[in-house]
C-alpha cells in the first residue's frame, strides 16, 4: 500500500491500517489482502468477479471491511458481492470505494451487492464513495444494492458520496418481510459538471414492515442530481421517504418520489424539499462572525453530517 492507497482507505473506510477481523481489500481489480474468521467467512466467486460473505447465525458485534481502491485510469470493473447474514446475527459491514484517477482514461467501479438477511438478523451497512485525481478521465460508480429481509430483520444503510465523483447511477432495491425494517441515510454531494442519479425501490411485503429513507443532497456548480423512489406497500406497513436538497450556483435537483399503496392498510409518506440555503441561516451564522462563504460551508457540512 502506498500513500494514495492509505489516504483513500482512510477516507472511505476510516481505516488507518489493515483492519482486524474479516476483511477483503481490492485494488485495481486484484486482491490486496483478505482475512476470513470463524464467524465471517469470505469466499471468492468462481464464475465471476466478486466474493461471498457468509456471516454465521448469532454472530454479534462483529464487523467486516471490504473496501475497493482504484488508482488507475482506463479501467472498468463490475464486482458481484453477496452477503449471507445468518439468523440473529448483528454485524457492521463497511464497504466503499475510492478512486484516484490521474489519467485521461476513465475509471469506473460498479459494485453489485446483494444482502440476504435471515430472521432477526441485523446489519449496519456503511458505504462511502469518493474520488480524486487530476486526470481528465471520468471517475464513476454505478452501484446496485439488493436487500432481502426475512422476518424481523433490520438493515441500516448509510451511503455517502463525498465528492469528486464524475457520475453515479445508484440503484437500491429492498424486499421486506414481516416486521422487517429498512433504514437508509443517503448523502450525496456533487459539484462542477458532475451527475448523480439515485433510485430506490422498496417492496413492503410483510405485515408491520417499515422503511425509512432519508436522502440529503447538496448540488453545487452546474451539477445535476436526480432522486427517485418507489415505495410499494403490500400489507399493513409503514413507509417514509424524504428527499432534502440544497442547491448552489446553477445546480439542479430533480426529485420524483412515488408511493403505491397496494394494500389499503399501507401507510406511506413522502416528503421532498429542494432549495437554496435559507437567507436567515446565513445571516445567523454571519452574525456570529463568519463570512458568507464560511456560513455556507457550515450549513452544508451540518446538513451532510
Amino acid at each position: 500500500m502506498d500513500k494514495t492507497d492509505s489516504e483513500l482507505l482512510e477516507t472511505i473506510a476510516g481505516l488507518h491500517d489493515i483492519p482486524e477481523g474479516s476483511f477483503n481489500i481490492r485494488k485495481n481489480g486484484k486482491l490486496l489482502a483478505r482475512n476470513s474468521t470463524a464467524d465471517i467467512e469470505i469466499v471468492p466467486k468462481k464464475d465471476k468477479d466478486g466474493i461471498d460473505i457468509i456471516i454465521k447465525p448469532g454472530v454479534v458485534n462483529k464487523s467486516v471491511h471490504i473496501p475497493v481502491l482504484l488508482t488507475v485510469g482506463d479501467f472498468r470493473e463490475t464486482v458481484y458481492n453477496d452477503f449471507y447474514i445468518g439468523e440473529g446475527a448483528d454485524v457492521t459491514i463497511v464497504a466503499g470505494c475510492g478512486i484516484h484517477n490521474d489519467a485521461c482514461g476513465d475509471a469506473e467501479h460498479d459494485g453489485i451487492h446483494s444482502f440476504y438477511l435471515e430472521k432477526n438478523a441485523k446489519v449496519k451497512y456503511v458505504e462511502r464513495h469518493y474520488a480524486a485525481g487530476d486526470g481528465t478521465g471520468k471517475k464513476s460508480f454505478d452501484p446496485v444494492t439488493n436487500i432481502y429481509c426475512k422476518e424481523n430483520a433490520c438493515f441500516v444503510m448509510e451511503s455517502t458520496q463525498l465528492g469528486g465523483v464524475t457520475s453515479t447511477d445508484r440503484k437500491t432495491y429492498a424486499r421486506l418481510g414481516k416486521r422487517a425494517q429498512l433504514i437508509v441515510k443517503e448523502k450525496i454531494l456533487t459539484d462542477g459538471e458532475e451527475r448523480a442519479v439515485t433510485d430506490f425501490k422498496v417492496e413492503l411485503e410483510g405485515e408491520h414492515s417499515r422503511a425509512d429513507i432519508v436522502s440529503r443532497n447538496v448540488a453545487k456548480g452546474k451539477s445535476v442530481q436526480s432522486f427517485g423512489s418507489d415505495l410499494i406497500g403490500k400489507s399493513e406497513c409503514f413507509g417514509h421517504v424524504e428527499c432534502d436538497g440544497i442547491l448552489l450556483g446553477e445546480a439542479r435537483i430533480v426529485s420524483t418520489p412515488k408511493i403505491d399503496a397496494v394494500s389499503p392498510e399501507a401507510s406511506l409518506v413522502h416528503e421532498a424539499a429542494v432549495g437554496k440555503i435559507a437567507g436567515e441561516q446565513l445571516l445567523k451564522l454571519m452574525s456570529l462572525g463568519l463570512t458568507e462563504q464560511e456560513a455556507e460551508d457550515a450549513v452544508i457540512k451540518g446538513f451532510l453530517n
Binding site: 436567515e280 452574525s287 462572525g289 463568519l290 450549513v299 451540518g302 446538513f303 453530517n305
Partner: peptide
C-alpha cells in the same frame, strides 16, 4: 456588512431563532 459588525462586537439574539438541519448545539 453583518460579518464585519459581528467582528466589531455586535451580537444578536433573534426574535425567531433560526433552525438548521444537522448543525448541532455544540457546533
Amino acid at each position: 456588512g453583518v460579518t464585519e459588525r459581528a467582528r466589531r462586537g455586535f451580537t444578536i439574539a433573534f426574535q425567531q431563532p433560526v433552525r438548521f438541519k444537522g448543525i448541532t448545539v455544540k457546533k
